[in-house]
Structure formats: structure tokens, C-alpha cells
Nucleic acid binder design. Structure first.
Lengths: 146, 146
DNA sequence: CTCCCTGCAAACTGTTTGCAAGTAC
DNA sequence: GTACTTGCAAACAGTTTGCAGGGAG
């Protein structure tokens, strides 16, 4: 499964531009979220963070996740059984696929979705400002290994 | 905004067929969910239920919601700020629009979405088994009243 | 008469808040 | 030095569970 590359520099710049102070915890968490290729919850990120920084507090992670979400750097994934997981945000509209077997996330071409949304906007008359499309199934590599 | 009609008879039959015993609480809750034109959380449904049956227990509502969801009669709505609200399930694939202003839900034509999903399946190679598309914005009537 | 359903209360889980100490700028 | 950040612990909200009594089939 192809994995999208997030530019950590950009994240640090965005945080800096927002007046946030850069600390070791923040760098650790940014690293965790930017490089995970499957959705992470705050709780999970906390466990990962504690592997390298055992004293990391739970609340700190929750606060950081909130920041990252508010800055639009990560985005909440609304899945089957819950909606507390996050993936790095891509510049374009996201069309997210999540493999039920391995849990990995993949970003698909979102142009058709944009077309679809414009089409629905015209036919319904509603003004559409945002969307969440999530696809579930079995990814190519899990199909091969089945 | 048009509202979809759910056949309460069908729900009662489905519950009956699943071996559930029909009680007054269940009828009340089915009525609430089947006729609400905006997503309801279990908590909200509980409050509504208590208006007609003050002694209704919270847990009973949660259990009933779980049943309805398992039977596929209601479906969880993954929204902006949470994912604990439910709408009646339509037979066909759902394309759900939620108005940020009035909170009402509308079901849009889902055929284009089905086409899009098949298209994405072919181009990505993933086997897609389910999807959640949710649209947010301002509905026609809220636009008029603005 | 049996077993499921109900309401109550307690337990639980994920998340938020308050606060004193620490640290980036 | 100032004000944001951190870790801890307590508070909180939504949800689940255990149980005794009640009601459907």
C-alpha cells in the first residue's frame, strides 16, 4: 500500500507560526503522527510516546492532538466502531480507505469525489461546505496474502 | 427539506423476527428514531422517551439502540464533533447530508456514489466492502432564511 | 412458567480540567 | 521574566454491566 509523505518541516513551521513553543514532547508526537501509516487515537499515541519518553503525560498528548487537529495538520477518522483516530491531513480533499484486515490507511484520488459533491450540490440545492468519505475493505496486499 | 419515510411496521417485523419481545419502551423508542428527521444520540433519545415515559431507564435506551444498530435499522452518523448519533437506515447505500445550521439530515441520490466507489475500487485495487460518505453544509431552507 | 426486558446503581473508559512546577523564548 | 507547556491527579460524560424484580410469550 502506498504511503503518503508528510513534510515534518511544514508541521513545525505551522506550529511555530501559530505561536506554539516547540518542546521535546511536541516533536515526539509530531513524529509519531506524521509517520504512522494507520490511524492513531490519542490514547495509542500516548502509549507510543511513552516508549521513548516514559514520563509523557496523558493530558499532554490529548492537548497536542487537539492543537494538531485545530491547525488542520491531522484529521479525525470516522470509522466503523469509533471516531477517535487521526491521520495526517493531505492538502487536497481526502478520500480515505481503511483496510479492515491490516488497519492501514490509504489515500485515493479525490478528484471524482469533488465532482460528485458539486453534482450533488446542484441537484439538491444544499450548500455543501465539507465532506467525509471513508471507504472500508481489504487492501491489495491483504488480498494477496489471503 | 424532504424527509424519508421509514415503515414502522417493517421495523416491528424485523425485531419480532429476531426473537425480541415487544414492549412499550421498544415501541416508544422505535417511534422516536423512525420519525426524527435529524440524527439522535442515545442520550437524546432517552430524554425524548422520558417525556412520554418518565421512568424509562438510560441503560434500556442504550441497549435498544444497540439492538436497532445490530439489526441495521439505524445507522451511526459520523459527524464533525462526534459519532454517537443515529439515523434510520435506508435500503440503498446512503449519502447523508447534515445541515450545520438546523441539524437536519437529508438523504441524497446515492447512485453517483456507487459509481465512484466502483471506479475507485478498480483504480486502487483495494476491495471495498463498505463506505461512509457524509456531507456538511447549509440546507436549502436555511439558505432562504439567512 | 420461563426467559427476556426493565430500571436502578455502580463500574468503567476515554477525555478534560485545575494546578504547581518546569521550560522556551 | 513572562507566559506557555508539562505531568499529575481529580473531575467529568457517555456508555456498559450486574442484578433483582417485572412482564411477554
Amino acid at each position: 500500500m502506498p504511503s503518503k509523505c508528510i513534510n515534518v518541516e511544514d508541521w513545525l513551521n505551522a506550529l511555530d507560526a501559530s505561536g506554539f513553543r516547540m518542546t521535546a514532547v511536541q516533536e515526539t508526537l509530531i513524529d509519531i503522527f506524521a509517520h504512522s501509516d494507520f490511524p492513531l487515537s490519542a490514547e495509542q499515541a500516548w502509549h507510543v510516546a511513552r516508549q521513548s519518553r516514559p514520563k509523557t503525560g496523558r493530558a499532554t498528548v490529548y492537548r497536542m492532538v487537539e492543537k494538531l487537529e485545530n491547525l488542520g495538520l491531522i484529521r479525525r477518522v470516522h470509522g466503523y466502531q469509533g471516531c477517535s483516530h487521526f491521520v495526517p491531513t493531505l492538502p487536497e480533499l481526502m478520500m480515505l480507505f481503511i483496510c479492515q484486515s491490516c488497519g492501514r490507511a490509504d489515500y485515493l484520488d479525490s478528484q471524482p469525489l469533488q465532482d460528485l459533491i458539486h453534482q450533488s450540490e446542484d441537484s439538491s440545492g444544499h450548500h455543501i461546505t465539507d465532506s467525509r468519505l471513508q471507504l472500508f475493505g481489504v487492501c491489495t496486499s491483504c488480498q494477496e496474502n489471503a
